[in-house]
Design a protein around this nucleic acid. Structure first.
Lengths: 133, 133
DNA sequence: TCAAAAACAGTAATGATTACTATTTCTGAA
DNA sequence: TTCAGAAATAGTAATCATTACTGTTTTTGA
C-alpha cells in the first residue's frame, strides 16, 4: 500500500492543470483554499513535491529563489521576465539536441551528462509596453 | 565617492580566484576566516553580491537552493553532479547561439529575450567510480 | 588632519521549505 | 460491512540561506 488517494492532492493537481502561468506553492495554496478552506500549506508543499517525483507535474527553478510548478510535462522551455517575474512558455523546438551537442564537444569529460536545465530571461511584452509610458 | 577599497573584499576575491570548484558563500566564509579570523558572514554575502553586480565574478544558480560563485567570468557552461552536488566547468562551445535560435523560433513571442541560463546535470566521474564498488 | 561616505562586525529578521506530531482518512482483507 | 494498519492531514515548530539593521571602524578626498 504505497500511495493512497487524497482529495487534497487531487484538488491541487486539478488546480494546476487550469493554469498556464506556473504558480508557486504559495499561489497554489491561496487558490486551493477557496474550495478547500482548511487545507494546510505543508500539505500543498508535500503534494507538489510528490507529484513532481511521480513525474505528473514539473518543478521549475528559474533563479528567483522560489519553486514554480507546471502541469504541462511536455518538453518545452520557459522565459522569465526580469521586471515582473512572470514565467511564460516558449514554443521553440530545435533545442532538443543541446545535451547531445555538449556531450559531443566534451570528449575529455569523464562524467555522464543526463540532461540539462535551460531558461531564458528578458523583458516580457506587458513590461515592454509599460516602459513606453 | 561610490566604491571604497576594502581589505575584506580583496581577500574574498583573491580566494575565489584560487578555486575552480565554484564555492558557496559559506565555503568562502570558512576559508577566508583562516587569514581573516573575525570577518563577518554578512560581509562575505555583501561583497559576493557586490562583485557579482560589478561583473567581476559570476553568481551560479544550479537548482540546489544555494548560490555558487565563480571568478571565471568567461562564457562557459557548468555540470552539476546529482550525487555529490559538485559543480564542474564544461569546455563545450557551439552553444553560444542558443538564445538566437530561440528568438528565431519564437516569432509570435512579444517579449525581448536578453539571455539564457543553462546548466547540465548527471553523475560526475568520481561518483561513477564509487558506484562500481 | 579631518569629516563624510562607505564598509564592517555582530546580530536580528525574513521567507521558502521541511520536519514533527497527534489526529483523520483510506483501503484491502476478514 | 467492519476494522486495523498504513498513509495522509492540519497545525505548528524548526531549518537554512540570505538580507536587513545598528553602532563602530575604515577609507579617502579636500
Amino acid at each position: 500500500m504505497a500511495l493512497k488517494y487524497s482529495r487534497q492532492r487531487q484538488v491541487i493537481k486539478d488546480f494546476l492543470m487550469t493554469r498556464k502561468d506556473h504558480p508557486t506553492a504559495d499561489v497554489v495554496y491561496m487558490n486551493v483554499r477557496h474550495e478547500y478552506p482548511n487545507i494546510s500549506l505543508g500539505t500543498v508543499y508535500r503534494n507538489l513535491s510528490l507529484l513532481a517525483d511521480l513525474g505528473e507535474i514539473k518543478r521549475l527553478r528559474v533563479g528567483d529563489g522560489v519553486d514554480h510548478f507546471d502541469a504541462d510535462t511536455s518538453d518545452h522551455y520557459h522565459f522569465v521576465c526580469t521586471e515582473c517575474g512572470s514565467v511564460i512558455d516558449l514554443m521553440s523546438d530545435g533545442l532538443e539536441r543541446i545535451t547531445e551537442t555538449v556531450e559531443a564537444a566534451n570528449t575529455g569529460f569523464d562524467g555522464e551528462i543526463i540532461g540539462h536545465v535551460t531558461y531564458f530571461y528578458g523583458v516580457c511584452g506587458d513590461c515592454r509596453k509599460k516602459t513606453l509610458s
